[in-house]
C-alpha cells in the first residue's frame, strides 16, 4: 500500500533551555520532544491517509536520544515508524538531514506523499521539504493549510502573506504544512498503548550510504537580548499620548 510519510524532528524542549547571564545557552537539562510544528505534519499525514487511502508512517533522522519520539509519534495515529539512527544527526545541516530523509524515503519505497512542517521549532530553517523535493525530483508545495484530494492529485491551499493560493499537483509530492493546517488531538489511552506494538524500522548510515558531512557548521549559539527602545510618551493629556503611541507603533510597522 502506498505510504504517506510524515517527517519529524526530535528537538530540545524550549521550556527547559536556559540562557545564562553571559548569553551562553544551556540545553543540557532540556528534555526532548517532537517539534511542535511536526505534530501538525503527523496529524496531516494521518488525515491525508484517511482521505486518500494508504498508510500514514513517520520518519525521523536523529541520534539514539530520539528513541522516546517513536512511541510518541506512533501514538498520534501513524501505523509504522522509520528512524534513520545516526550520531551525526547532531551536527547535520539542512542538506545532510534532507539527504538522510530522502534516502530513507527511497528505501521505504512506494509513497504518495511526504509531509514536513514548514520548519522545525528549534532552528526553523525551512529547508527540509524543498531539499527533499529537489533530491527526489518531486514537486514541493510549501505553506499549506488545507489539503484535499481529487483522484491521484492533491489540491492544496497555501497561506501567503495576505492571500490564499490554491495549487493542484499530481502525486507523489512533498508538502510543507503550517501549524494552521490542523489541531493535533492529544493521544488517547488506547492510542498510547497501541503505539508500543506498532512496527519500527531502523536504518543506519551503512543501510543508506549517506554522506553525513555537513557544509554548514554551527560555531556558536548565544542568547539574544532584544534592545528595547524605552520610549515613554508622558507629555500632554492622555488623548494626545495615545495618538502619539499609535503613530509611533504605525511608524514601526507594528500596527
Amino acid at each position: 500500500m502506498s505510504k504517506i510519510i510524515a517527517c519529524y524532528k526530535w528537538v530540545a524542549d524550549e521550556a527547559d533551555i536556559r540562557i545564562n547571564p553571559d548569553q551562553s545557552v544551556d540545553i543540557t537539562k532540556a528534555k526532548g520532544k517532537i517539534s511542535d510544528y511536526d505534530k501538525n505534519a503527523i496529524e496531516a499525514a494521518v488525515e491525508a491517509a484517511g482521505k486518500l487511502g494508504g498508510q500514514a508512517v513517520t520518519l525521523t533522522f536523529g541520534n539514539a536520544g530520539a528513541k522516546p519520539s517513536i512511541k510518541d509519534a506512533l501514538s498520534r495515529g501513524p501505523e509504522e515508524a522509520y528512524w534513520v539512527k545516526a550520531a551525526e544527526a547532531d551536527q547535520a545541516d539542512g542538506a545532510v538531514t534532507a539527504r538522510a530523509l530522502a534516502a530513507a524515503i527511497q528505501k521505504i519505497g512506494d509513497s504518495s506523499l511526504v509531509i514536513c512542517a514548514e520548519g522545525a521549532s528549534d532552528t526553523y530553517a525551512r529547508q527540509i521539504a524543498p531539499r527533499i523535493g529537489a533530491i527526489l525530483n518531486l514537486p514541493v508545495i510549501s505553506s499549506v493549510i488545507i489539503m484535499t484530494f481529487e483522484g491521484n492529485s492533491l489540491v492544496a491551499t497555501r497561506k501567503l502573506e495576505d492571500s490564499l493560493e490554491t495549487v493542484k499537483v499530481e502525486l507523489p509530492a512533498v508538502v510543507a504544512v503550517l501549524p494552521e493546517a490542523n489541531n493535533p488531538p492529544l493521544p488517547g489511552l488506547k492510542a498510547v498503548m497501541a503505539a508500543g506494538k506498532k512496527p519500527l524500522t531502523e536504518y543506519s548510515a551503512a543501510d543508506l550510504g549517506i554522506d553525513f558531512k555537513p557544509r554548514n557548521q554551527v560555531v556558536a549559539v548565544k542568547g539574544y537580548v532584544m534592545n528595547r527602545k524605552n520610549i515613554i510618551f508622558d507629555a500632554g493629556d492622555s488623548v494626545s499620548r495615545v495618538k502619539e503611541l499609535a503613530a509611533a507603533l504605525r511608524k514601526e510597522g507594528v500596527l
Binding site: L186, P187, G188, L189, V192, M193, G196
Partner: peptide, 12 residues
Amino acid sequence: AEEIGAMVACGV
C-alpha cells in the same frame, strides 16, 4: 518497569 514488561502510558 517498562524494561521488565509493564506498559506505561503517559499523558493520559
